[in-house]
Structures are given as structure tokens and as C-alpha cells.
């Protein structure tokens, strides 16, 4: 604290320019956010490079069956005799890919519909919102089961299913924020100078949604990964021989009393990814002042 900082300012002094790096400094000051970011970075690089750095192929059968950890196989081998460490390292790849692709789709479609519903209003708003209400009224797992039976279990189909299931939530959030922004006078100014609908939505309103969308995207990716793992566990998602943490937990159920690490290890890796995303998003959202997202998934 210095005395100079309280010297009377000249009249109509310009507002101090807002320091651009202030939010970033706040992020770096928060240990939870840093833990989150490190975990996310770790998992992303693992997903990208697992096939290159894994000691063995994920499908090679190397032993007669279940073996405990050893010098050759640090985490042992699974029931079929495949290297468990290699499979664990690759276990998040498909779920992450499906979640990223599906949630990207849902954010794109949801933003488009949410902007239209929130800004245009009237019957279009009614139609879009009743449609999302209808989708949200179906119990989620039941909806997913129906969609899986309809579209199948390939990566593309699963991504489409994720996109369908997550779109209504995005629509609601974007619509609410759009209604708020549409009431501001800069939107009025754009209308008064005769801007087209597309310009008002994409150039005037959408840029103000970016922070919200970034948080929405990350939060829903974390939720989607959990959901895909649950599906795989139930046999509705990713299937053999693709390694997947949800599937690995399910396979380990039969040996849980004799070899519990087969269950605990994929559970820990899955949790660390989810926790990482959530911590990172929480910190970033707070630092950049994004509020009003549906963090209660």
C-alpha cells in the first residue's frame, strides 16, 4: 500500500485498462485448478500416445490367463492373458473420443437451437422447448438403451447417441443466456440498423456465449465419459476386444474377491480423469466469471 495510490485523480480520469492476464493469474494461484489441469493434460497425452508408449499390444495374448504383477507385466495379465498395463493405458481412448465427438455435436446443435429459441421466441421457441422437454422426460438410461438398439454400438453411433442425449441441456442453457443478452440495448441497436437474423445471432449474441459454451462443453464431456463407461459396464456401450475402463470394471467383477486390483485400477483412472476435468472447469469458470451453468448433472 502506497500513499501515492490515493492521490486524488484528475476529473474524468480514464478507467484503468483491465489487465488481461488477471484471470489467468487467479487460475495459477488455485491449487485445485492446477491439479485439475495437470490431470487433464496427463489423460489427454495418454489417450494420444498410449499405443506408442505401451509395452505390449492391447490384443496380444501373452500368457495362459490371469497372472499377478511381474517384471514383464507390471500389472499382470487379464483373464485372457493380455497385458493389463497396456490395456489400462488405452482404456480411456474410445470413451474420450466418443465423448468429445458427441458433445461437440450437441454443443453445435444445442447452441443453434438455443439461439433461435431464445432470440426469435414465439411459436419457434414453444416448438423447440417442448421438443427438448419431451426428450428430457424420458429416463436417460432408457433413452440411451433405445438409441443403442436403434443405431448400434460403433464409435460413430455412440457419438450420435451422446449428441442426441446432451443436446436438450445445451439448448436450455443457451436459450436462457440468449434471452438475457437479447434484452440488452446493443441487440436493439443491431435491429434498428436492420441487421439480418443470422448476423444478430452469430455476430452480436454468440460471441458473448463463448465462456459459457466452453464450460458447458467441458462439463458435459466429463459427464459423457462417465455415462459411456456406465454403458460399457452394462454391455450397451463399447464392446470387446476394445479396452475400456467401464468394460474392464465389468470383466473384473468375477474376480473381485481374489484379484481386486483388476477392478480398482480402471476405477481410479476413470475417476482421476473425471475429477481432473471437474476441478479444471470449476477453477476456469470461476476465474473467468462464467456462471449459471448446469453443473449438477
Amino acid at each position: 500500500m502506497t500513499v501515492e495510490s490515493f492521490a486524488p485523480m484528475p476529473l474524468a480520469a480514464p478507467a484503468a485498462p483491465i489487465a488481461r492476464n488477471r484471470p489467468l493469474r487467479r487460475v495459477l494461484a488455485s491449487p485445485l485448478t492446477m491439479i485439475g489441469l495437470v490431470l487433464v493434460a496427463f489423460h489427454l497425452s495418454l489417450a494420444l500416445f498410449a499405443p506408442l508408449i505401451a509395452p505390449y499390444s492391447i490384443s496380444a495374448i501373452l500368457t495362459d490367463g490371469l497372472t499377478p504383477p511381474s517384471a514383464q507385466h507390471w500389472l499382470g495379465t487379464d483373464q485372457i492373458g493380455r497385458d493389463y498395463l497396456s490395456r489400462l493405458m488405452s482404456g480411456g481412448r474410445v470413451a474420450l473420443l466418443v465423448a468429445l465427438a458427441g458433445v461437440s455435436g450437441s454443443v453445435l446443435i444445442g447452441t443453434f437451437l438455443g439461439l433461435l429459441a431464445g432470440y426469435v421466441g414465439g411459436w419457434l421457441d414453444d416448438a423447440i422447448m417442448r421438443l427438448t422437454d419431451a426428450l428430457m422426460a424420458i429416463p436417460e438410461l432408457l433413452l440411451i438403451a433405445i438409441l443403442v438398439l436403434t443405431f448400434g454400438k460403433e464409435i460413430g453411433s455412440l457419438s450420435l447417441i451422446v449428441a442426441i442425449v446432451y443436446t436438450p441441456g445445451v439448448v436450455r442453457v443457451v436459450r436462457a443466456k440468449t434471452i438475457m443478452i437479447a434484452s440488452l440495448d446493443f441487440v436493439r441497436a443491431a435491429e434498428l440498423r436492420g441487421e439480418r437474423l443470422g448476423f444478430v445471432l452469430m455476430r452480436e449474441i454468440a460471441p458473448n456465449l463463448l465462456g459459457l459454451l466452453a464450460v458447458e462443453f467441458a462439463i458435459r464431456v466429463s459427464s459423457a465419459i462417465l455415462k459411456i463407461s456406465a454403458l460399457s459396464f452394462l454391455g450397451l456401450g463399447i464392446s470387446q476386444p476394445t479396452p475400456d475402463w467401464g468394460l474392464m470394471v465389468q470383466e473384473a467383477m468375477s474376480v473381485v474377491f481374489t484379484d481386486p486390483w483388476f477392478l480398482i485400477l480402471p476405477a481410479i483412472t476413470l475417476s482421476s480423469l473425471i475429477i481432473g476435468i471437474n476441478f479444471a472447469v470449476d477453477g476456469l469458470a470461476r476465474a473467468y466469471g462464467v456462471t449459471g451453468t448446469e453443473t449438477d448433472l
Binding site: 440488452l184 440495448d185 446493443f186 436493439r188 441497436a189 434498428l192 440498423r193 436492420g194 452480436e204 458473448n208
Partner: peptide, 24 residues
């Protein structure tokens, strides 16, 4: 405004109450 001619939209201009709300 959107039903008016381009020139008419230019000829009538408005300044708003809350300057922060009026600027994107």
C-alpha cells in the same frame, strides 16, 4: 425498423440509457 427502408433506418438514430448495455 426491419420493415423500413435502409435510408429511413439511417435517418432516425437512437442513443440508449445504459451505455454498457448498448455496446457489445
Amino acid at each position: 425498423a426491419r420493415k423500413r427502408s435502409r435510408d429511413m433506418r439511417r435517418r432516425i438514430q437512437m442513443v440508449f440509457q445504459d451505455p454498457l448495455s448498448a455496446l457489445n
